[in-house]
Structures are given as C-alpha cells and as structure tokens.
Design a protein around this nucleic acid. Structure first.
Length: 581
RNA sequence: CGGGACGUAGCUCAGCCCGGUAGAGCACUUGGUUUGGGACCAAGACGUCGCAGGUUCAAAUCCUGUCGUCCCGACCA
C-alpha cells in the first residue's frame, strides 16, 4: 500500500475536545473523526485495526466452539416487553417509529433476539450445548458519551450467547469463554485481567469483567496483590472495616441532644460534639421501585448502590428528594435516623449494613431538625428489616482470601462474561426436551467484548510521547517503508518497491511512504501512527550498502541491503510469536 | 438530568473585562530556495465571530434565550 494512495490525515496539534491520551491519538493519528458527540467515522487506518481485532476475536471464538451469526440491529418491541427489559433497560434504549407509527428499538444487546431464535430452533437436549456469537453495531442512548470510542452511542461489540441443558454445562460454557477472553486480549497485546463483577440490568448470578488497568478507566477494581482476589468495587467484599464497630454499652437510653446546624458526619465529628464518624449511623433514604426505604451505613463508610440494588432485588433505585424525605420522616437530611421510636412511618423497610450488627453507643439523627440521639443500640432501639453487605470496600482492608491489605486501581472494562441461568429462556420460552421427555428452559450465558473500546484501550496502554506503539498483532500496517527520496527511478524508491513486494508475498502488511516530504515529517508521522517497524532507505546508508531497521520505541539497526527483507520478516515473525496467547 | 467550562478560518488559539477596520501560528494554493527528525522566503485564498432576539448611531465584545461541544456525578462493552 502506498501512503499517498490511502487517507491518513495526521494532526500536529491536539484537538481541543479530546481529554485522554488514547482519544487524542485516535484523532491525531488519523484513525477516526467525530461526526457528533458519541458518533465516529472510522478512517482507513482505524478500520484496519478494527478488522484485525475482529479477526482475532473471530479466531478465538471459533476455536472455543462459537458459531457466528448476524442478528438484526432493528428489533420489535414485543420481545423486549416479554423479557421485561422494555422497562428496566428503557434508559439506554433507542426507540424509533416507522411510517405506521409502530415502535421499534435499536438493539443495545441481543439476549431477546437470540433467545427467540433458540425458542424456535433448539428443541432437544441433543442440540445442546450451542454458543452463538456475532460482531455487530450496538446502539445505546448513553447518558453521557465520553472519551471518544470509550463510551459511544453506537459501537461495535462482539456478543455471544450460550445455551446448555444443565447448570454444569452452562458453567463449562462460561469457562470456555473466560479462557477465550484471556487469549483474545493477550493476542491484542493488552494486559487485561478478569475480576468478579456485578450483573446489573442483564441479570444472572455469576459474572466476570475483563479489565485493562488505566488511570483513565471508568471502573475501580479492588484487588489483592497475591492475585487471589480481584473484583469490581461494585461487587467487592473485604473482611470488614479496618476499625471495629463500637459495641460497648453504657446502658443508657437514647438521649436526644441539640445539634443546631449540624447536617454532616464531619460536623458532628468536630468540636464541640466530637462524635467520631465510626460512632455514627448514616441514614439514607432511597426510592426503590417506587417505594421508600431506609438504608443504614456506618458514618465512616459509603453506600455501594450496586450492592443495594443487587441485594434488595430492586430494579430502579434513586435517592429520595428532600420533599419526599420530610414527608416520610418529618425532618431534613442531616437529622435523619431509624430509631423506631422516632419513625413517623414505622412500616418503612430498614436495610442495614453488616458492619452495624451489634453496634452500641452510636449516634444518629433524631428525625427532628437540629437534634441527634446518642447512646443508641442497634439491637435494642432499631427494627432492621434485613442485614446486607452494603458498604463500599476501602483501600487497606483485609482480603477475604489472604487477609493481605486490599488495593484499588482504575481500569477500563473491555469484556464481560455472565452466567445468566434461565432468566431469559423462561420468559421467552426457550425450552428443550430432555432425554427423559421432560421439558426445561435452557441454561444461558452471555459474553460481550467492546471491540471499538478494546481498540482504544490498546492505544491507552501502548503509547509514548511520540504517539501510538501498536502491538504487531493489531497494527494497521506492520512495517512502514520510508524512502527518503521518492523520485521514481531513485535507488531508495526502487529498493522500497522491491521490499514492499517481498514483504507482501511473505504475508506481511507494509505501507510505503511515497510522499515527497522531508524526512522529519515522515519520521514523525510514522511514529505518531505507531507502525511497529520502520525501514529507512536513505542515500547515506545505502552508500554504505545498508538499510536501517527502526522498531517503534527501540533502537535503530543497520543491515546489509541484501539481507533486509529476511531481517524484516524474521523480526515480524518473532514479534508475532510473542503475542500468540 | 444536576454542577462546571467553552463555542472566533480546516486545526490550535488571541481579541471580549473597557462596544467602533476580525487577527496570529499551523494546514491549504502559486513561485523560488531547501532536503536524515514536523524547513525558509514571497505572494495568495479561506470567516454569516454557533444560532435567534434585544440594548446601541455602532455588537465577536453588553443583555436574554437557544443549540452544540467538553469535563465531574447517576448508566455501561
């Protein structure tokens, strides 16, 4: 491929609306251009990388027994109503109407479609297990598109769905995908690792996310350095708070005292009150599926809303408004409590974090503006509807596996595997006949990879001050051949054309920079775009009978003209071998 | 949807406070000189100052509204 014959609009300056380095480099290296927020055009080089990642995914999915299909992006709403997600996922659903005013959705994911297919086509245990996958554009009405391809309204996703006759079979399918994902990301040159994850709107009961460590990621991962424990912070557990919850009893009854103007944990912890956060009970009011609930957390902990949703089974949870709180409790935020005697509405459910079990000598709001209660004993003074682990794990807490201190780091989620169970197969009647003639819903799993996000994650992980450093497996071109003069019959250009032809014949993709530009421009561009190996053909070296090999980010090496092609091929083969998972 | 910032040439930005001729660098066109790390000289082309109202003799500049973009929070591959 000749550079002049394709389209690589590099930018010397950083576009103003790109915040993170991978987004900046996507634009500067001429891989993508924005149409509008959350929607991007892939330019030739970006598309080449995308196709390479797709191909790696396809190879590994096929190797793991996946069967490729292609489902409609435009979907009827009835299957979404049947699964119940027309409501629960309505926040991300793009809805469109046809000329007859009939409503459709643009698929954000395909459990409904594939399960409908399975309902019709998979009727016998003899047909199971099956794992269908596709690589397709997804549409999500993201509340806030962000960071270029990281969170877009439209993005390319590989999604796979497994159907098994038994739970054990479903676990086996799950682990096949888990292993395939590890290979896929390794082959893409990414350092990605699986962590335990919350299942969210998709539902199900077992799940891992594949995370790429990066400061710009949108997730916090809690992990133990032993490697024995890693989980998304939404799901993570520990052996509890570093400091124990107070349990010593003074025997005194709850005592109301005036705290004018005190509406925060910090204010109550400060003089003249001096009630440390650990001795306070934080009372939060939420509306869960339209019903108010009270949530109790130790004063120095923070609530994990994902856990709240998961544990209570609520589908939609939001914080109550100030007006709703006053109506429910008769006081404003800052003076709220759950002590039974102070509750205006005693029937309201009270969910308490495990860390508060047996707590005594606590202080909490009196449900009267400007007053708190002290000497509160949870078991004696409160009626707790249910105890759950609701707190967010903090750095340094003890690992449940090893008791070592836990760490937290930011990461980008590039893949997610779920064991779904029979949630969708039951709702959409995907049942099969077992050997004994009994009918059962298929046991399902679903498995996603954000292909476009993976592309950007590679850039986020592989770059330096000069630009991108593509792993050979996904580089748009493996070799950039750079003649320093481009007159058609010049020696550099003649040798460049020969080398390009030889590499092509060896199955190595090369781009020949035939632009009549000064060497500096060509060097800068090739480094910005990030081709793994550049071959310089300049009169200076050629006069000594040499050609220059410059690996991206490595040191230049001279090789005799006659050996150049063989040396390049050997280099590429060695690099490729390193990335074979 | 809440909070913040910003919309001026293809790109990066100045001008706005204090109203009065719309600017710079890069990119682009032409000619010349250069040619191993984003060249130089000269000439040129490129703008409804996001949009709509208002105030004013006069608005990029002041006021109101609106649209868009980016960042922080709730959502997710």
């Amino acid at each position: 491929m000749l550079w002049s014959q394709t389209f690589i609009p590099t930018l010397k300056e950083t576009p103003a609306d790109a915040e993170i380095v991978s987004h900046q480099l996507l634009l500067r290296a001429g891989l993508i251009r924005k149409l509008t927020g959350g929607l991007y055009t892939f330019l030739p080089l970006g598309l080449k990388v995308l196709r390479k990642i797709e191909q790696i995914i396809r190879e590994e999915m096929n190797r793991a027994g996946g069967i490729e299909v292609l489902m409609p992006a435009l979907q009827p709403i009835d299957i979404w109503q049947q699964s119940g997600r027309y409501e629960t996922a309505s926040g991300v659903l793009f809805k469109v109407r046809d000329s007859a005013r009939k409503e459709w959705v643009l698929g954000p994911t395909h459990e409904e479609v594939i399960t409908s297919l399975a309902a019709n086509e998979l009727n016998s245990y003899r047909q199971l297990p099956k794992n269908f996958y596709q690589i397709q554009t997804k549409f999500r009405d993201e509340i806030r598109p962000r960071f270029g391809l990281m969170r877009a309204k439209e993005f390319l996703m590989k999604d796979a769905y497994s159907f098994d006759a038994t739970d054990a079979g479903a676990m086996a399918s799950y682990h096949k995908m888990y292993d395939a994902y590890n290979r896929i990301f390794a082959r893409c040159g990414l350092q990605a690792f699986p962590v335990e994850a919350d299942t969210g709107v998709i539902g199900g009961n077992y799940s891992h996310e594949f995370m790429v460590p990066a400061e710009t990621g949108e997730n916090d991962v809690v992990y133990c350095e032993s490697g024995k424990y890693a989980a998304n912070i939404e799901k993570a557990i520990s052996r509890g708070p570093a400091e124990a919850t107070p349990t010593e009893s003074s025997g005194a009854a709850p005592d109301k005292f005036a705290t004018p103007g005190v509406v925060t944990i910090e204010a109550l912890a400060a003089a003249p009150y001096g009630v440390s956060a650990r001795h306070q009970i934080k009372t939060l009011v939420f509306v869960a599926d339209s019903k108010p609930i009270l949530v109790l957390i130790r004063g120095d902990d923070s609530l994990n809303e994902a856990k709240l949703m998961a544990k209570t089974g609520a589908v939609q949870v939001r914080q109550a408004t100030a007006d709703e709180i006053v109506e429910l409790l008769g006081a404003r935020p800052g003076s709220l409590g759950a002590v039974s005697a102070t509750l205006k509405t005693p029937t309201v459910p009270v969910y308490a974090d495990e860390a508060l079990r047996g707590a005594r000598g606590m202080t909490t709001g009196a449900n009267e503006d400007g007053f708190h209660l002290r000497h509160v004993e949870v078991d004696r003074d409160l009626k707790v509807t249910a105890w759950y682990d609701l707190r967010t794990v903090k750095v340094g807490e003890s690992c449940v596996e090893t008791q070592q201190p836990l760490k937290i780091r930011r990461a980008i989620e590039v893949g997610h595997v779920f064991k779904l169970g029979t949630k969708y197969s039951e709702k959409l009647n995907a049942t099969f006949l077992a050997e004994d003639g009994s009918r059962h819903p298929a046991v399902m799993g679903c498995y996603g990879i954000g292909v476009t996000r993976t592309l950007q994650a590679v850039i986020e992980q592989c770059n330096d001050k000069d630009g991108i450093r593509w792993p050979v497996s996904v580089a748009p071109f493996t070799v950039c051949i750079t003649p320093l003069t481009v007159a058609p019959e010049s020696q550099p250009m003649t040798l460049a054309r020969e080398l390009a032809a030889t590499l092509e014949a060896a199955g190595i993709e090369a781009i020949l920079d035939d632009r009549d530009e000064r060497p500096g421009v060509k060097f800068k561009d090739s480094e910005l775009v990030g081709f793994p190996l550049r071959v310089n053909l300049g009169e200076k070296s050629l006069a000594k009978g040499e050609i220059e090999l410059k690996p991206r980010g490595g040191t230049m090496r001279m090789v005799p003209i006659a050996d150049a092609a063989a040396e390049v091929i050997a280099w590429v083969r060695a690099e490729s071998a390193r990335l074979q998972g």
